[in-house]
Amino acid sequence: MDQHETTYGYTENKDALLKRLKRIEGQVRGVARMVEEDKYCIDILTQMSAINAALHKVSLGLVNDHIGHCVVNAAQAANESGDMTQLEEKIDEATAAIGRLLR
């Protein structure tokens, strides 16, 4: 890896994350097919619920990765430098992301 390349909390699990997202993408295509085929509303809603649950699980994993990597690294840098600015920014980012997930 290039020393200037940025790593993120999900970097170690990137393959698994992409696999899960591709599975969700397949579920969405399946729901579109159900609509095209005039399937029963409740069956479509059941699949939508499964997609939402899968997306929430991915989202929570990303929040966990962000806090465990980006926020922790910012805290370590703040501890070393005494400058809390970057840490405060990372905490604000995480809080905003969680807020968007809760809407």
Rank of each mutant, 00 (worst) to 15 (best):
N52G: 09
Y40K: 09
E37N: 13
L18V: 12
N64V: 06
T85D: 03
T7W: 02
R29P: 02
E88C: 00
A54Y: 05
K22P: 00
A53P: 05
R100F: 03
D65R: 12
L45F: 05
D2T: 12
H4V: 08
Q27C: 09
M34T: 05
D15W: 00
Q47D: 11
K19W: 11
T7K: 10
D2S: 12
T46V: 01
D92G: 06
E5D: 09
L55K: 01
D83T: 05
I51Y: 03
I42D: 04
D43K: 07
A75G: 07
L62A: 00
K19A: 15
I24N: 08
E25F: 07
H69R: 00
K39C: 01
K14H: 04
K90E: 14
G9I: 05
L60V: 04
Y10C: 06
Q27P: 03
V63N: 12
A32E: 12
A50Y: 13
C41A: 06
E5Q: 13
L62P: 02
D65S: 15
D43Y: 08
N13H: 10
E12V: 14
R100H: 02
I44Y: 14
R23G: 05
G61C: 11
A96D: 04
S49M: 11
K90S: 14
R103E: 01
A77Y: 00
S49K: 10
E80C: 08
L102T: 08
A75Y: 08
C70R: 00
T85H: 03
M48L: 14
K57L: 12
L62G: 01
I67W: 06
Q47A: 14
R23F: 15
E37Y: 04
T46R: 13
I24S: 08
L45G: 00
A96G: 04
T46F: 04
E37Q: 12
N73L: 05
A96L: 03
D43M: 06
T95M: 02
A32M: 13
K90P: 13
A96I: 02
V71F: 12
R23L: 06
R100N: 06
E89T: 13
G61S: 14
A54M: 01
I51A: 01
G30H: 07
Y8A: 00
L101T: 07
E37S: 08
L102Q: 12
H56C: 07
D38K: 05
M48S: 15
R33Q: 15
E89F: 01
H66Y: 15
I98F: 06
M34R: 07
A75T: 14
D65A: 14
N64L: 13
Y10T: 00
K39G: 02
K39I: 11
K22F: 10
N73P: 03
T6C: 08
A94D: 01
K57I: 01
V35G: 04
G99Q: 04
E12M: 13
G68K: 13
V35R: 03
V71E: 08
D38W: 07
N13R: 10
G26N: 15
V72G: 03
I42N: 09
N64A: 14
G26S: 02
Q86W: 01
T85C: 04
A96E: 04
T85G: 09
M1I: 11
T6R: 10
M34S: 08
H66R: 05
